[in-house]
Nucleic acid binder design. Structure first.
Length: 949
RNA sequence: GCGGGGGUUGCCAAGAGGUCAAAGGCGCAGGGCUUAGGACCCUGUCACGAAGGUGUUCGCGGGUUCGACUCCCGCCUCCCGCACCA
């Protein structure tokens, strides 16, 4: 049959109808509501396959719930705040060749259109239009009346209100924070601005302030607890140090460290230089223990790392031990050191299993490290650090910290030391150098007076965790991930100087950072509908929002203050309390540690518990032919391209059917081609069924009819459970592929009269996935929109185990015959089947009952069996069969006993003969008729004996 | 390094103590149907096979169990996130 499936035509038609007839524009009513949201896309490019995945999952869920009877709200908007769009507009205006290439080739934008996008506003307008078209072209059931962009003045007003609330809660605070900084550009450096060192992170070192008289010699360390074990300091004799004023103190640090200090929030002034040599031999005081220790020379001290001064803990740090050992026999008279360094006693302060007093010594011996220049010293350091960090506990000589795990000590101790003026925090890159795109070496800059959202606030955190505990997380494994991230989340800078966005209402020179304005915007969808139909809210006071979203005040007062009709105010308020909370937010997994967290934080801050989100779902990405997609480097597949080349339904089918949850979908052209063929097959088969005039739906159901209906119920149940858990792949396996196979078997077995009934279910099961073809087919069945049709419900009464058993017997028997034919390489002329004798059935029944506990006592079984005259008559064969049953005791099933095998096979004799191509005779082994080879003795329940002539 | 998730038969991918040589799809092979078919239908696709059987498999190495792809321990390896960036 020739395919007349025309995706573009069908899809365009239904998209038009959905829009014209406002099929997806819900209003509050008496039904249960379901509010589903997906993070809006950022408008610096076209939607791509990754968006396609997240959005399509959401759309399928929206469609599913709608069919299940929920009043579904599925809105969409666009994100434009932040810096990238501003940067993009400049690059386009300057015709940056790289950007030009990316946007014409990867994003598929015609040159003349691209060249016009020279301002942020034009970019936003352009991509907003394109994104909306793309989403419409793939058939999303979005209520577009609620569309907005985060740069809309009305939205700004909403964000201002929100930040007013947060400020009132004291969740917005002022502080400083370290950023990667380019001294040349005088700007924070983002990842894509980096030439070298992209993976570098900012680490916080403790700067322990050893004192030499009034001077401070700060030592940078990642292990502040080891201050208890310091035996000496290390300085590099060949390095020049600086004596500088730092805040109100005099510090001695390397020149490099001095430079770094100038970018921190300290007041720094250059004093004079001093060579390392001059300092060596002098004594300093450990601020915590009060111990006097000597300064010794060491070549491994890097002036560019930390302060250029290192504290020495030879008991636990292999380098320190090695360096000290190297000095034992050295002549240090040039530094005026005459004492015997062997007298310096090591101080052990960490107890860890597997190590004795001095882990550093043990590790050095274990790895046979020669000296401080041996590369293996590095390995020894890592080894000791790892073991001590994970399993170590502080010893008694650490005083009040004794017994604390090493892994838990850092923050506590550092806080205490800072409080006592004994330490400060010093930020360093994890790797150096970090080079900006302009070629300059980056530093860490302390940005002062920055506005922060205080995500570290413990009370706030506790509420978020509380919220999480009450939510459904899909997949459930991600709950731990969320918990960990909440635990880890620190204060977040929420304002910046550049870009698009909303100004902080109380400090207008700051713009609210772009992730911070996207946290409770789902509530704004309710309002957006009114704004879009002409309501002006750009100058409304907070009382308006307070009433709408927080139920504070009265509609009457708000109407008076704003001049908006009281009924309208009341209606918006009621809309909000009808639709909220968010029932499900689905998103890509990249947003877990940022947006989704902030989403929870802000909801618990602003809304009462009953309005907290109910569920979060996380999904993986899309790769292209095994390659990771990249918006800037390619490969990239845009949504529109995918739909243009394959059609909306095929794209949806492929992307929903190839992976689920956090797995990535790999977009492969041959796979997509296969999906298209499958969809065409579905469509053609459906058309055939619709055209078949010979179907008699009122006919009495035969065995195969009952089998088909039974299977259908199972597929419905499987698909429903899967969709409830947002397992689109699993749902499609049942609703599409397996059901299709069932249908093939049904037709092959001569089934026909239930086809239309099955199709009615099938089309509905497929509607969330391939809505356009399904509408097309549904229209021919003449019952409104399939998008609004009732989701099929499995009818337990139609599940027919006996029919399924009968078909299984048939299938198994055919398989067995075919295998014998294959193995013996014979060409059969006649086949005789012998169904199980009654005594074996009886015995299986006894055995199954006896084996209920998983074990089968042969003796007891035989004894019981022999009591039955029918079994006793087969004294010879009975023990053999019993032995066989005993072996399989763990998996015995009496299911086959529910079936009259002789009756079944006799009835299907013609079918068997046709399928096998030779005459088939069926006997019961109890009345075997002609059986020259004695084959009938092999007959067992569920497994007829076979004799091939 | 830290945290989360993986490694299954040519590929994608289900399975989570016995019903498993392991669903489904793709690919491949054979057959059918066809003027033709990159359409459709059937069959096969770990190896061997003597009548429906047997053997060897689920990243690697151990262990628990009558029995492990499934549970425990160790290791190797891949992917994602680690922020002020959307």
């Amino acid at each position: 049959m020739l395919s007349d499936y025309s995706a573009p035509e069908i899809e365009a038609r239904w998209q038009r109808i959905w829009e014209e007839k406002a099929v997806f524009q819900p209003e509050p009513d008496s039904r249960q509501k379901f509010f589903l949201t997906i993070p809006y896309p950022y408008l610096n490019g076209n939607l791509h396959a990754g968006h396609t995945r997240t959005f399509t999952i959401g759309d399928a869920v929206a469609r599913f719930r709608r069919m299940c009877g929920d009043n579904v709200l599925f809105p969409m908007a666009f994100h434009a705040t932040g810096t990238p769009i501003v940067g993009l507009s400049e690059l386009i205006a300057n015709r940056d060749p790289l950007i030009w290439d990316v946007y014409t080739k990867l994003h598929g934008i015609p040159e003349d259109e691209l060249s016009a996008l020279t301002t942020p506003e034009k970019i936003v307008a352009y991509f907003r239009r394109e994104a909306k078209r793309a989403m419409q072209s793939i058939g999303y059931s979005i209520d577009w009346r609620r569309e907005f962009t985060t740069t809309d003045p009305a939205y700004n007003k909403f964000i201002e209100w929100q930040y007013g609330i947060l400020r009132g809660l004291d969740y917005v605070v002022k502080g400083s924070h370290p950023v990667r900084w380019c001294p040349h550009d005088k700007n924070p450096v983002e990842d894509h601005d980096i030439l070298k060192g992209e993976d570098t992170t900012i680490m916080d070192f403790s700067l322990i302030k050893f004192r030499m008289g009034d001077d401070v010699l700060p030592c940078a360390t990642l292990r502040p607890e080891t201050v208890f074990g310091v035996t000496n300091l290390w300085l590099n004799p060949d390095v020049n140090y600086v004596i500088a004023r730092v805040n109100d103190e005099t510090w001695v640090v390397s020149k490099e460290a001095y430079e770094k200090l100038t970018f921190t929030d300290r007041k720094v002034a250059w004093g004079s230089e001093i060579s390392g040599k001059e300092l060596i031999g002098k004594r300093v005081k450990n601020p915590l223990t009060g111990a006097e220790v000597i300064i010794l020379p060491a070549g491994f001290v890097d002036p560019d790392s930390g302060s250029g001064i290192v504290m020495s803990v030879p008991a636990h740090a292999p380098y320190d031990y090695l360096a000290l050992k190297d000095l034992y026999d050295a002549d240090l008279s040039e530094y005026g050191i005459s004492e015997d360094l062997r007298k310096i006693g090591f101080i052990s302060l960490i107890e860890s299993p597997g190590y004795g007093e001095f882990p550093a010594v043990e590790a050095v011996n274990e790895l046979k490290v020669k000296d401080q220049n041996d590369p293996k010293a590095e390995e020894a350091t890592r080894l000791v650090y790892r073991r001590e960090f994970h399993n170590g506990v502080l010893k008694a000589n650490t005083g009040r910290y004794a017994g604390v795990a090493v892994s838990k000590i850092k923050d506590v101790l550092l806080r205490d030391l800072i409080e006592k003026g004994m330490a400060e925090i010093f930020y360093e890159f994890s790797e150096t150098p970090v080079i900006c795109r302009c070629g300059t070496r980056c530093v860490i800059m302390m940005v002062r007076d920055q506005w922060f959202l205080e995500y570290s606030n413990l009370a706030w955190k506790a509420r978020v965790l509380d919220c999480l505990a009450g939510m459904q997380i899909i997949p459930e494994e991600f709950r731990v991930e969320f918990q960990n991230k909440i635990d880890w989340l620190k204060d977040k800078a929420c304002a910046r100087r550049k870009g698009l966005g909303t100004h902080l209402p109380w400090d207008k020179e700051w713009l609210i950072e772009s992730l911070g304005d996207s946290t409770i915007y789902m509530s704004y969808y309710i309002l957006a509908k009114y704004v879009n139909s002409g309501m002006k809210i750009d100058s409304l006071p907070p009382e308006f929002f307070d009433y709408i979203f927080m139920d504070k005040g009265t509609a009457e007062d708000v109407a008076r203050v704003t001049g908006i009709a009281q009924e309208t105010v009341q209606q918006i308020h009621n809309d909000f309390f009808y639709w909220y909370p968010v029932d499900l937010r689905t998103s890509g997994k990249d947003l877990v540690a940022n947006h989704l967290l902030f989403f929870l934080y802000h909801h618990v801050a602003i809304f009462p518990q009953e309005l907290w989100p109910r569920a979060l779902a996380v999904n993986g990405f899309v790769s292209l032919e095994g390659q990771k997609m990249s918006k800037s480097k390619g490969p990239l597949l845009t949504l529109r391209q995918a739909v243009a080349e394959n059609g909306a339904d095929v794209t949806r089918l492929y992307i929903l059917g190839n992976a689920e949850y956090t797995q990535d979908v790999d977009w492969r052209n041959d796979g997509v081609g296969a999906a298209r063929a499958q969809l065409e097959r579905f469509y053609n088969l459906a058309r055939e069924i619709l055209a078949d005039k010979s179907i008699d739906e009122s006919a009495e159901p035969t065995l195969i009819d009952r089998w088909m209906l039974s299977r259908l119920q199972k597929r419905i149940a499987e698909a429903t459970v899967a969709m409830e858990g947002i397992q689109t792949r699993r749902a499609l396996q049942s609703a599409f592929y397996l059901l299709y196979n069932d249908l093939r078997w049904y037709q092959r077995r001569g089934g026909k009269n239930q086809l239309r009934r099955v199709l009615s279910v099938w089309v509905r099961l497929m509607a969330p996935f391939t809505p356009h073809v399904c509408e097309e087919l549904w229209a021919e069945m003449g019952k409104g929109y399939v998008s609004l049709a009732e989701w099929p419900v499995a009818d337990a009464a139609l599940v027919d185990e006996q029919a399924e058993q009968a078909e299984k017997l048939l299938e198994d028997t055919l398989k067995d015959v075919e295998e014998i034919v294959k193995v013996t390489k014979t060409t059969p002329s006649k086949i005789t089947l012998y169904t199980t004798p009654a005594w074996k059935q009886e015995m299986l029944g006894l055995a199954a009952k006896a084996a209920a506990g998983g074990k089968l006592d042969m003796g007891a079984l035989m004894k019981e069996a022999m009591a039955s005259p029918a079994i006793a008559a087969h004294k010879k064969d009975a023990p053999k069969y019993a032995g066989k049953l005993a072996k399989a005791a763990h998996s015995l099933s009496a299911e086959v006993l529910g079936l009259d095998e002789f009756e079944t096979l006799s009835r299907e004799r013609d079918y068997l003969a046709k399928a096998l191509g030779v005459p088939v005779e069926v006997y019961s082994a109890d009345e075997a008729g002609a059986d020259p080879k004695g084959k009938s003795r092999q007959a067992e329940p569920g497994r007829p004996a076979i004799w091939i002539e």
